[in-house]
């Protein structure tokens, strides 16, 4: 068994990405779609930090990962506000039943 290198982290992040994509494509609940997006952002972050560690690029990759976490927080807040509004107007959060922009 070889020791842990860059490839191990990349494989973990690609499997995490595929799982997040699967969640986005198959689930109907808008909150579940949000969870899939969070999984994908986490997998991208693992890639940034892994390349920063093994590529000898200094700390730039870690800072980009930090910015991605901040953007994810802002995105989650706004997206959940929109989901609450949709629930108020349509009484459902299933993304396949919401097909009107305005009542």
């Amino acid at each position: 068994m070889t020791s842990i290198g860059l490839q191990h982290y990349l494989v973990v992040s690609s499997i995490l990405f595929s799982l997040g994509l699967f969640g986005i494509v198959t689930r109907k609940n808008a909150v579940m779609v949000l969870m899939g997006i969070e999984l994908i952002l986490n997998s991208a972050n693992i890639n940034f930090v892994a390349f920063a560690r093994y590529g000898n690029f200094g700390f730039d990759g870690q800072l980009i990962a930090l910015f991605v976490v901040i953007l994810a927080a802002a995105e989650a807040a706004v997206a959940l506000a929109i989901v609450l509004n949709i629930y108020k107007n349509f009484s459902t959060v299933n993304v396949d039943e919401i097909d009107k922009l305005k009542e």
Binding site: Y9, V49, A50, Q62, L66, V69, A72
Partner: peptide, 15 residues
């Protein structure tokens, strides 16, 4: 494990 302790703490606090 990747040596990014600050990012790990931010991950726990923010996520």
């Amino acid at each position: 494990l990747l040596g990014a302790d600050f990012i790990a703490i931010v991950q726990v606090i923010v996520y």
